[in-house]
Simulated assay, not measured.
Amino acid sequence: MKNNKIIAVWGNPNSGKTTLSIKMANELAKNNKSVILVLADSYVPVISTVLPFTETKEQSLGALLSSVQISQENILEKCIPVMKTKNLSVLSYLHSENIRTYADYGKERVLDLFILLKHLADHIIVDCSSMVHHDLLSRGALEMSDQIIRLVTPDLKAISFYDSSLMLLGERKYNVENHIKVLSNVKPVMPKDSISNHFGGIRHELEYCEELQQQALEARLFESLTDKSSSGYNQQFSSLMNEIFSEEVVAEKEEKKARKPFFKRREDV
């Protein structure tokens, strides 16, 4: 696809990476985009907490990465469809798996995976592990992504995390200076102004949303937020999506304008 993108979502622990990744993937799918959501964390596989009643049929991301050969067909076999959602599937480590479950794989395998994925869907959303220095797949996602969303919770632990972790991403290939920085899970009592000043360049804010929290607890994150109290989050989320995919929207509008009718209207003849 001409305008397809790999979007990596990274952030400090408990910053809402999985939640935002699911919401983004779901929104794109609702707009008739084909999407593959990659849940990259092998330390805490989340598939059973976000899709607990879905049969996986041994469709493990770990098995895919450690296989003898990787191909588009292999990837599609391991994709887990999301029920009642068109054009959206998930790649994930499965419940009870860990870093010792499968054989080790190298960087080339990770790069091959993302290259192949980009030919299989309009968009790839990668929910990265916070500890990218320990996770080759998440680190590869930061390197290969067209856009990286960096979530920051407005607290002192986030400062400590990034003061340590960003030093490990000093190479140009990680494009740290161009990450879209987003304050996440913001509550009124939090020192968001102080945190924003510390990091600089915070472009978006996602407020704490009670309905979103309830969805996470009940494994309903693939559903839309419909409560009136969620309107603030929905507006902030839309603003973030508009920035990331604005070029695509413009390209689609120009493409539609370029399509001329085969027959002229009578009044034009």
Rank of each mutant, 00 (worst) to 15 (best):
N3M: 15
I6Q: 01
A8V: 04
G11P: 04
S15P: 04
G16C: 04
K17C: 03
T18C: 05
L20G: 02
N26F: 04
L28F: 09
K30H: 08
N31G: 02
N32H: 14
S34F: 07
L39G: 01
D41Y: 03
S42E: 00
V46N: 02
I47N: 00
S48W: 05
S48N: 10
V50G: 02
T56M: 04
G62F: 00
L65P: 00
S67T: 06
I70N: 01
E73C: 10
L76V: 15
C79V: 09
P81H: 10
M83D: 09
K86I: 09
I99G: 04
R100G: 02
Y102Q: 00
G106S: 13
K107E: 15
L113E: 08
L116T: 01
L120I: 13
D122W: 03
I124A: 05
V126M: 05
D127Q: 08
H134F: 11
L136C: 09
A141Y: 01
A141Q: 06
L142E: 09
S145Y: 01
D146V: 08
Q147W: 05
T153L: 06
P154I: 07
A158H: 05
Y162R: 14
D163N: 15
S164W: 15
S165V: 14
L169P: 03
R172C: 12
R172M: 11
E177M: 12
N178P: 07
H179A: 06
V182N: 01
V182E: 01
L183A: 09
S184D: 09
P188T: 09
V189N: 15
P191D: 11
P191S: 09
P191N: 12
D193E: 15
G200A: 11
E205M: 09
C209L: 08
Q213H: 15
Q213K: 14
Q214K: 14
A216T: 10
E218S: 14
L221T: 10
F222G: 11
F222A: 10
E223Q: 13
K228C: 06
F237A: 02
S238C: 07
N242H: 11
N242E: 15
E243H: 01
S246I: 06
E252R: 08
K253A: 14
K253H: 09
K253G: 06
E254F: 03
K256R: 06
R259C: 03
P261S: 13
P261H: 10
K264L: 13
R265D: 14
D268A: 11
